[in-house]
Write a protein that binds this DNA or RNA. Structure first.
Length: 575
RNA sequence: GACCCCGUAGCUCAGCUGGAUAGAGCACUCGCCUUCUAAGCGAGUGGUCGCAGGUUCGAAUCCUGCCGGGGUCGCCA
């Protein structure tokens, strides 16, 4: 049961009754009427802005509407009191009998509590990571990987039909560099002295196994071939092995994409040519030249004609090139064909999780989807800001030139996947994040992973002590009346609404913050048991109370488990 | 020059799509361990929400213009 939508219905009914009674004019727009938690819990359990929103269209002062509405609301059996306050809020306190019903419903739903039908099965494509297959993932990929995965989980829980996808950039010039680098390692594996890796090729040692595999597979045969014969072989082999590497890196974070989509396949199948032709027939492609950027004009700028897509017709700032001067397609052209493919697969929303350096792509992706789908398909781009690495407050230096980059694998192996995932999500995606190896492994309240995990572990410790036998009796939640207990119950009642709001906003970090708050409420309650034995979860000689408390713990465990599941963090049984 | 993010307590950050007296943690001060794990809890101190206008019943939130920090800007992917 979603507490807020439940009360929303009560408010809507009361407003309808007021309209019928002639207290409100017919045909008012009720869409802005909200039922929300009050900012300050002392104001009540739920509040509505109905009177303020309707004041103007109804031509009545907000307090007048509020007073009349409050009387009707207070008459409802689920509402203990309703009173107008402030500029026209109506604060409501729910009937004491209401909370046990919320808890019973939550207990009944178990692991599914908080799941929602909001998405109504709409097909959503979430594309994330999509790193070039030229080496292992580095720490910069980490955030987008975790964010995209948690967002996909969140949308799933909210009732969307989610597909996780990875776009393999296997068609460009960097793949040729990769193949040539692998060729060098192949020669090395055959015993040639290759000396230093020439500038412009990838120096990473992760290509050594590729060379060895090629040597084992082909012997010296490739050495005799001209470039254009061995290059396709090496491209394919290197990409395959790099993708295996990347899949392994992702698996270390429990990330598994369902679809790996090849850019090259779009070239090979003719999909790009087809898509561009389609746009051309609609008059959206033309030959023209773009103005140079104002301000700092590049040194080598020369005016030239290009094949352009009229992205400006669809909200972009500038038209975008589809073809290079040698007649081959641009990366963007492949993007257009890829978008068409996704649209044809029936997605109604395309989500792209990108690094902040791709901010310039947002408008063109939206323009493409708009042009290809007639505005029916939404494009949502979520940009992940940089992660800065620290160790005990000191920045971790990385030198790309020397090949000294911290890999995703390094980070996961040092602090563990759960810490990485939680910390990457304990910040809004569009704000930069500092990641300190030392701090995140400290065991203190400053470390939110630990704090939430500790709550889960404590819940389990009570069950270990109590045994599971009592937990199967039917609990009487009305026995739970302490303010600290009610704080926890109110927090739990907010969970379904919070999940929906987080899903709509595409903001998985809200789950992480919610869990921290729930853990905080729980730790408070726990400690009250230290001062007053009557508030402990297991109370001697009070079996009914104990049953109710254990049922509360079960629901807490469901919510913590459910939330951590969305984040992709494994709940621990003990610490 | 244009576009995109960010600017909230000394520090690190939330702020539920426009709501009430802007909240947590850390730091600082003071309390709580014979107990279901003190990896915890309670109390206190701390704010010109970058600045200036605007929109309205009401703005940290929306609009405009500045200031400061980061990012991006035609054949790379």
């Amino acid at each position: 049961m979603n507490l807020f939508s439940h009360v929303q219905h009560i408010v809507a009914d009361a407003l309808k009754a007021m309209t019928q009674a002639g207290e409100l004019p017919e045909g008012l727009d009720m869409s802005r009427v909200m039922v929300e938690p009050p900012r300050d819990a002392s104001h009540g359990d739920v509040a509505t802005n109905a009177a303020m929103v309707l004041s103007k269209p109804a031509g009545k002062p907000p307090r007048a509407i509020a007073d009349a509405l409050a009387v009707r609301l207070a008459a409802h059996s689920d509402i203990a009191s309703a009173e107008a306050a402030g500029p026209g809020f109506i604060n409501m306190r729910l009937a004491p009998a209401f909370w046990p019903r919320v808890m019973e419903a939550a207990l009944e739903q178990g692991d599914a509590f908080g799941h929602s039908a909001l998405g109504a099965g709409r097909k959503v494509n979430v594309e994330y990571v999509s790193a070039n297959p030229t080496g292992p993932l580095h720490v910069g990929h980490c955030r987008g990987a975790v964010f995209g995965d948690a967002l996909a989980n969140l949308l799933q829980v909210a009732g969307f039909n989610v597909l996780r996808e990875y776009y393999i950039n296997d068609a460009g010039g960097q793949i040729e560099v990769l193949a040539r680098s692998a060729f060098l390692r192949y020669r090395e594996a055959l015993g040639d002295a290759i000396g230093d890796i020439p500038a412009g090729l990838y120096p990473g040692s992760y290509l050594i196994p590729v060379g060895q595999a090629l040597a084992a597979e082909h012997g010296r045969a490739l050495l005799q071939m001209p470039d254009d014969q061995w290059l396709p072989l090496l491209r394919a082999k290197s990409i395959a092995m790099m993708m295996d590497l990347i899949r392994d890196d992702l698996a270390a974070l429990e990330i598994r994409h369902e679809v790996f989509f090849s850019e090259k396949s779009l070239h090979d199948s003719g999909a790009i040519a087809q898509t561009v032709d389609g746009l051309r027939q609609r008059g959206l492609v033309y030959q023209g030249s773009l103005p140079p950027p104002k301000g700092e004009v590049p040194e080598d700028w020369e005016d030239r004609e290009q094949t352009l897509f009229k992205a400006t017709d669809f909200g972009d700032d500038i038209d975008r090139p589809l073809m290079k001067s040698d007649g081959s397609y641009t990366y963007f052209a492949a993007d257009v064909a890829y978008a068409r493919d996704k649209i044809e697969r029936g997605f109604s929303e395309l989500i792209f999780v990108l690094g902040a350096d791709h901010g310039g792509y947002v408008k063109r992706l939206q323009a493409v989807a708009s042009a290809l789908s007639g505005g029916k398909v939404d494009v949502v781009v979520r940009l992940c800001q940089l992660v800065k690495l620290f160790r005990a407050g000191e920045p971790v230096r990385m030198s790309k030139r020397a090949g000294e980059f911290v890999t995703l694998r390094d980070v996961v192996e040092e602090v563990g996947p759960d810490v990485v995932r939680f910390m990457m999500l304990y910040r809004k995606n569009d704000a930069a994040l500092d990641f300190d190896f030392q701090k995140v492994t400290e065991q203190s309240r400053e470390n939110p992973v630990c704090y939430v995990q500790y709550a889960h572990a404590r819940v389990n410790s009570v069950f270990r002590k109590a045994g599971e036998s009592l937990t199967h009796e039917k609990p009487d939640f009305s026995l739970l009346t302490d303010p600290a207990e009610l704080d926890v119950i109110r927090r739990i009642a907010q969970y379904p609404r919070m999940v929906e709001a987080a899903a709509l906003a595409h903001e998985p970090h809200r789950i992480a913050f919610y869990l921290y708050e729930l853990a905080s409420d729980f730790h408070s309650l726990w400690n009250k048991g230290k001062d007053s034995p009557q508030l402990r979860f297991i109370v001697e000689d009070e079996p009914k109370l104990t049953v109710a408390r254990l049922a509360l713990l079960r629901v807490i465990r469901y919510v913590l488990g459910n939330g951590l599941n969305i984040l992709g963090v494994r709940p621990v049984e003990e610490m």
